[in-house]
Write a protein that binds this DNA or RNA. Structure first.
Length: 941
RNA sequence: GCAGAAGUGGUGGAAUUGGUAGACACGCUGGACUUAAAAUCCAGUGGACAGUAAUGUCCGUACGGGUUCAAGUCCCGUCUUCUGUACCA
């Protein structure tokens, strides 16, 4: 009896697919296209663990399914190969990141190949290849050469802006630009020197240099974007982050805030993910209100969502970092204010977030004027006001806002009540509805909506404010003080940034000796010898040649990780193109990504930035779509089951899990490789693992074994709970791994990895193999007899279920269906060709290797990959369909066993043929059979 | 605080638009094969009660109500868990 030879057959078919380019997508085809994409991985040194392939398996099943369905499927894979870990490793070891990255990619590829994915590897991209990043640089140049026109609500060429300035100055221009952009007349513009004009245009460009507060991470030696900070510490490494002013490249993503919200309507993404993006963009509707200062020319602008409460303002609060603080502070308060500003600046972001309950603040001594009543309003500073949101200043309405209320109580400031019939003894009244305004002049008796509208009208009339929509989304900082990233195609001439010519791209990353900042604090590129730009010859030259006429310094920062990943999906459609990032023809054919699978951790990073860049490229006419990913699925994380051995206070004695009750012990992570599925620890292996455990003693439990405890945690090298897919492939095969990962549970749910049930799935494949290897010596044996009605029924049940499951991405239940099918076929000893052929096509997305092998054994010459998917035919289920009585309440009702597309007559026949029906009818002849929509059949007797 | 998702056997999880709850798998129990173990195969497996038995009856989808001939599924309320996010004015 031959056993299922998964190792040899999987290797055989993987080689076959590579050799025959089975999964290469046709660049031109009459077939409809389908684009299935995985979020490409960062090739880390740790290799893949069993969690990574989950999404890849799901997308692979879908891609293979769509091929069977007659689509020209694009299913590529690549690597997001610029990034911090390779650079950190380079700093420690001196190895070039290019080398380690290359090695890691090779390892990833080896692992991926073992799992039988149907990737079209001829289209592989790597973001760190110069052939790729030259187009990242090219997009940067397009951003630099664009501005955002609010009138047309799209990005336009900068030349259009120059023409507008020439014609009429800034008068008719509405643009997303820096706040301090001066107004100009056409004459003033014309009078500017070229350099002055260039400096002025920087206020408008989609990517611009700005001295801005950034998140500086001293440990990593770089700035971070907001989405790279989690709970006040860096996402990578968990290092503290402080605020710092630096000159940085920024991306004007905030200009797209509204379109990024609106665009969510049209795409099929998970609700929670859309919600996360909406929250991140943070639209809020309200008004800006201008408060004039007593004794100063300057004004304070605040943003409020409650203009209706304008008469309840009793003080203003500024963020300690607010520009005006030092200007308006009175001599008496100067010291106290300076101390407070200093104290807040020294607190890290994290500390500030940690104690939100402590109320602190200082009076500046200055007063503003109420815009409508002219009453004096004291100005305070307090760290509950964030510099980065709105204008960094708030009008405090203590009766309507809890934070203002707490602040007022703490410092004994007045709390005027401006709502009718509510009590604010204990806390502020923060509801917008129901809410009737009182004590507010012309707003009395109005509700929130009406009062807000009237207040805004009054403010506009006086020139003291206007209605405004505010967004939380800030422009994204685009510079990183790192080595391993895309160099900016930028050099500096007279202190002004210039783009290198598109023709001389790529600007290749220079070599450096050490991957650390320079002594002067410049980024690592400051160490490169060859890093100056010869403008005349448009090429990189030695820095010694920098002069004032034609050789200039190049930008030392590099681009962030999200640069390369924001457009890679376009490169796959035409990966070798050296004239364009992709040809119009290819872009027009492949369009959007139809299905995108990846983790939800990219909700506010990659998935937002990609949408931004695509909208920009669309505005500028380079692509015709304005959303990159039509449908998106977040696969749930596969968690690890960590194992702990418990050590008592002696430090060398370990207690079995059943002995730790009531004893003071410390749990120690042990490698899950030493632990059996019954939680039994291989004590000897554990001793050998670390020298410190060599002399450890072990108190065994009642059954004479040493037991560990388990806990579900994220899979991570440091928790020793990583399970390697290679090991599973070696032991059970790729088909088992693929099916088992799907079997674990719903795709979108997080679930712990456990090998407990893997034998069940493996057993299914063995059964399938055995069903068709029942001949002498275990040879392949297949009957050419026609299939029995029962077998056809089983087959068509399977076709129906599996098709529906794939369409609904409910792969886990498909696996069960296959098991049932094979059990049933085994029970009826059915091994006929008529059943096997369609069954293999159904199975091939899930277990492609065994499907190919049996397909070939049937006698087919070519791959199963493009065979048409079987079609469900209800006829085969009808034969054995049954009806049964379900309820008797005046009417007789029957239930069909299965919902079928049957004619009323056919249903009647089935119902009347049923034994129990006959009993219930007791010989009476029914007048008619009523079919209620759905499955219920009424019989009127 | 806010937003989202979810509560079903010992476990992972099934159950199309309301229609025989617990598919399938793991685990467990018993049996066959074996000197023995592994592997493999067969049978049983939500709970309670009754019966020698086939079988029957009742209770069961977090909790309390409701709609319906019929509710895991729909509606109202309560509780719990998970995930994301937060001085956002």
């Amino acid at each position: 009896m031959s056993t299922y030879p998964f190792r040899t057959l999987e290797e055989k078919w993987q080689n076959y697919w590579t050799k025959h380019q089975t999964f290469a997508a046709a660049q031109k085809s009459d077939l409809p296209k389908f684009y299935v994409l995985d979020m490409f991985p960062y090739p880390s040194g740790a290799g893949l663990h069993v969690g990574h392939p989950l999404g890849y398996i799901a997308s692979d099943i879908y891609a293979r399914y769509q091929r069977h369905k007659g689509f020209n499927v694009l299913h590529p894979q690549g690597y997001d190969s610029f990034g911090l870990p390779a650079e950190q490793y380079a700093i420690q070891t001196g190895q070039h990141p290019k080398k380690t990255t290359g090695e890691n990619i090779a390892r990833y590829r080896e692992q991926l190949d073992k799992m039988g994915f149907s990737f079209d590897w001829s289209r592989e991209v790597r973001t760190s290849d110069a052939d790729y990043y030259r187009w990242t640089q090219w997009i940067f140049i397009q951003l630099f050469d664009s501005w955002y026109d609010l009138n047309q609500d799209k990005a336009r060429p900068i030349d259009d802006l120059v023409a507008l300035l020439h014609d009429g100055g800034t008068q008719h221009i509405a643009a997303a630009c820096d706040e301090d952009t001066p107004e100009l007349t056409a004459r003033q513009w014309e009078a500017m020197l070229p350099d002055q004009q260039q400096a002025y245009l920087l206020h408008y460009r989609m990517t611009y240099l700005a001295e801005s507060e950034v998140n500086w991470c001293p440990e990593l030696g770089t700035v971070l974007a907001n989405d790279e900070i989690i709970n006040g510490v860096s996402e990578r490494g968990g290092y503290p982050v402080v605020r710092k002013k630096m000159k940085q490249w920024s991306m004007r993503i905030a200009a797209y805030a509204q379109r990024l919200i609106d665009g969510l309507e049209a795409i099929d993404w998970p609700q929670p993910l859309k919600e996360a993006q909406r929250n991140w963009i943070g639209r809020s509707q309200g008004a800006t209100v201008v408060f004039a200062l007593q004794d100063h020319k300057e004004q304070i602008e605040v943003f409020t969502t409650r203009p209706d409460t304008i008469f309840g303002v009793s003080f203003l609060t500024l963020a300690p970092e607010h520009d005006l603080v030092s200007k308006i502070v009175t001599p008496e308060q100067k010291e106290a204010v300076a101390d407070y500003v200093m104290a807040t600046a020294q607190r890290s972001e994290r500390e500030r977030m940690a104690d939100v309950k402590t109320i602190s603040g200082v009076f500046t001594g200055a007063y503003a004027q109420h815009p409508l009543t002219n009453a004096p309003i004291p100005i305070w500073i307090g760290d509950y006001v964030l510099a980065g949101y709105g204008t960094g200043a708030v009008m405090a309405v203590p009766c309507g806002d809890q934070r203002d209320y707490d602040f007022a109580k703490h410092f004994g400031l007045p709390i005027p009540l401006i709502f009718a019939d509510v009590s604010i003894e204990e806390q502020a009244y923060t509801l917008k509805d129901p809410c009737i305004i009182a004590e507010s002049d012309f707003l009395n008796g109005l509700n929130y909506k009406m009062a807000s509208q009237k207040a805004i009208e009054a403010l506009e009339e006086k020139g003291k404010g206007s209605g405004k929509i505010n967004y939380r989304l800030r422009d994204a900082v685009f510079s990183r003080q790192r080595y391993w990233g895309e160099p900016f195609p930028v050099y500096y001439k007279n202190g002004l940034p210039q783009m290198i010519s598109v023709a001389s791209l790529p600007l290749k990353l220079p070599e450096v000796e050490v991957y650390l900042p320079t002594q002067d604090g410049d980024p690592p590129l400051g160490r490169a010898g060859q890093w100056a730009w010869d403008e005349t010859n448009q090429k990189v030259v030695e820095i010694e040649r920098i002069n004032n006429t034609d050789v200039f310094p190049l930008e030392l920062n590099t681009m962030p990780g999200w640069a390369g990943s924001s457009w890679y999906f376009f490169r796959y459609v035409d990966p070798a193109n050296d004239q364009e990032f992709a040809s119009q023809q290819a872009l027009n054919y492949w369009q959007q990504v139809d299905l995108y699978i990846g983790g939800s951790e990219h909700a506010t990073g990659h998935l937002l930035y990609s949408r931004f860049w695509v909208k920009f490229l669309c505005d500028r006419g380079y692509v015709s779509i304005d959303e990159p990913f039509k449908k998106l699925i977040n696969q749930g994380m596969i968690l690890g089951e960590s194992a702990f051995a418990h050590r008592d206070d002696s430090g060398t004695n370990f207690l079995s899990a059943d002995l730790i009750k009531g004893v003071s012990t410390q749990p120690i992570h042990v490698d899950v490789a030493f632990v059996s599925s019954a939680n039994e620890l291989d004590v000897e292996a554990f001793r050998q693992w670390r020298s410190e455990y060599q002399s450890a003693t072990f108190a065994l439990g009642q059954d004479g074994t040493f037991k560990v405890t388990r806990e579900v945690e994220k899979m991570s090298k440091s928790k020793f709970n990583v399970v390697n897919p290679d090991d599973i492939c070696q032991q059970y095969g790729a088909d088992t791994l693929r099916m088992y990962e799907m079997f674990l549970g719903p795709l979108e749910q997080a679930k712990p990895w456990s090998t407990a049930g893997i034998t069940g799935v493996h057993g299914f494949l063995k059964k399938l193999w055995k069903l068709y290897h029942s001949g002498p010596e275990g040879g392949f044996e297949l009957s050419l007899k026609p299939a029995s009605p029962e077998a056809l029924k089983t087959l068509h049940k399977t076709i129906k279920k599996v098709t529906e499951d794939i369409e609904n991405f409910s792969f886990n239940t498909s696996v069960s269906t296959f098991m049932i099918t094979v059990n049933e076929l085994t029970a009826m000893k059915c091994s006929v060709k008529e059943i096997l052929e369609p069954l293999l096509i159904l199975l091939s997305p899930y277990a492609p290797h065994i499907a190919e092998e049996l397909w070939q054994k049937i006698g087919h010459q070519s791959s199963i990959a493009h065979e048409p998917f079987p079609i469900f035919d209800p006829i085969f289920l009808k034969e054995s369909s049954k009806a049964y009585p379900i309820s008797f309440n005046g009417k007789m009702r029957f239930m069909l066993e299965m919902s079928l597309d049957l004619s009323p007559k056919e249903i009647e026949e089935i119902v009347l043929a049923h034994e129990k029906t006959q009993e219930q009818l007791q010989g009476r002849i029914p007048k008619k059979v009523i079919i209620v929509p759905g499955k219920i059949v009424n019989i009127v007797g």
